[in-house]
Design a protein around this nucleic acid. Sequence first.
DNA 1: TTTGAATATTAATAATATTCATATTAAATA
DNA 2: TATTTAATATGAATATTATTAATATTCAAA
Lengths: 292, 292
Amino acid sequence: MDLNKLNTFYVLAQMKSYSKCAKKRFVTQSAVSHAIKTLEESLNLTLVEKNRKTFALTSEGKILFKSCQKIFYEVEKTQDLLMKTKKYPELIRMGSTVEFGVSVLLKGMEFFFENHPDIHVDFTLSHSLIQPLLDDELDVIIDCKPHVRPDLETIVLFREEYAVIASPRYVKKNKITKVEDLTRCNIFSQDHELAWWRNFIHALPLEKQVIFDRVTRINHVRGMINAALSNMGVGFVPRYTVLRELEEGSLVELFPELDILNDHINIYLKRRNLALAKFQHLIAHIKEFRLQ
Amino acid sequence: MDLNKLNTFYVLAQMKSYSKCAKKRFVTQSAVSHAIKTLEESLNLTLVEKNRKTFALTSEGKILFKSCQKIFYEVEKTQDLLMKTKKYPELIRMGSTVEFGVSVLLKGMEFFFENHPDIHVDFTLSHSLIQPLLDDELDVIIDCKPHVRPDLETIVLFREEYAVIASPRYVKKNKITKVEDLTRCNIFSQDHELAWWRNFIHALPLEKQVIFDRVTRINHVRGMINAALSNMGVGFVPRYTVLRELEEGSLVELFPELDILNDHINIYLKRRNLALAKFQHLIAHIKEFRLQ
DNA sequence: TTTGAATATTAATAATATTCATATTAAATA
DNA sequence: TATTTAATATGAATATTATTAATATTCAAA
């Protein structure tokens, strides 16, 4: 299968016209016609519906078109990446959780750019990070989920401390003093199954492990915080995301005496990349600004 | 970027030798040399490490190679699919959960093949089905997870009834009569967090919702059944997977009086495919043999 | 140094892609 | 029904590109 002709077919299927495809490819309509014909012959298939005035693909043509979308999407990504690495030879494609990225990472990178003007960093804030890392679409990720793979190196960054938070007004109104009082409260969780609260619940003695009735799903940490600020209920969030609110008193931490099993926030990268200077610099920097 | 030359580069990077690449592509070594040189010039990049006797890629070459793996993996899939649809014009690529596939689907398809010799079905048994469906790598899936998407059609197949099971010997030895007795038992779950047991736990009155201490992770339903048969603990499995064992008495169902919220098993397919005869036939057949 | 294996180069040639000019097609219009 | 029109197909000529054959270069090992 000639991939350049396949590309012509892909453009043709998008433009739905031989002449428009020709214009797009800067060739004559005749060239397109020849190319498609040769492609069809080489595949021994009809791709474009003949016996028709209006343009249409055959069923095989449609199947091939769907595949082309995947192929040429990869090609485009490749071209973008190649251009970028040419422009920035020391490119690092970095991923992090949305919350850590917004609250900590991006704020802490200013100094890094100053010290390493040659290194260029692209940021991807997302909830699904591990697959892009394994697929080499990201070079380094910062994630709170644990990942164990033979080809991945893990660098422990810090323990992510969680806090149960609510507005002072909500606490007062609902008279929250004991853990059991939470059963009467509106609970914010990333999920209805309360997997999000797992670490909190596990910190309780067995006989006290609560069942929450009124769970409100909010799939964003900042959303939870804002809901808590609006006296809507109780949230369970990484402490670093509410430092300001706790300090100014707009939120209070409930049960700070509880020893909650905290998640680790880790840096992950491919083992083979560990030795490269640019990654060493980046890791050193992130570790350092976390200590502040 | 000329994709045919890119393919030559990809083969070269795999073979790590111009002459071997040439042999593989049925051209001369000279042709490969020319192709790579032209590709490098068009990208304005050096891909292969010069000044060396041993073959090596430059860092840009390595990046391009990794991208090539993705591109040509898609190309290969495309060629396979095209060959298959040429051979079987009425191809259906069907996905289902491992358990449903093994226990029900494949056993129930014999009659379908007899009645529709023109339709060809490929089966993919997997735990991750929705993404391949959305990517048009599967045409129809049977899944117990709920999916709501505007371009997907859902056909309710049946409710998947779950059963708590253990061997009679295990029940006797541990004197299991009440739900609370399970806290003393070894519990089999797909996951340590007991999300797998969610439907069971939700069926209990609030004050009785148990905390299991001894959870053994077994990520395969048949594995759970075999463990239960070996007097190792208590499993929670789709009832249809243990019909035989329940009948012959090698396993018993615990708390059958409990009204467990069962999962739905649904058929999903792209809305645009719903009208096609082959899918209509398949769906009709699956619905029918499920009624037996 | 010499040798040999691997790759590069150059000019010639083979293969192919593209164009130009024109034919065909099918639908719309007179 | 003939005519027009826009879109695509075709065939021969031509331009471009790919490949080869022959040979040069390179580099490490003998």
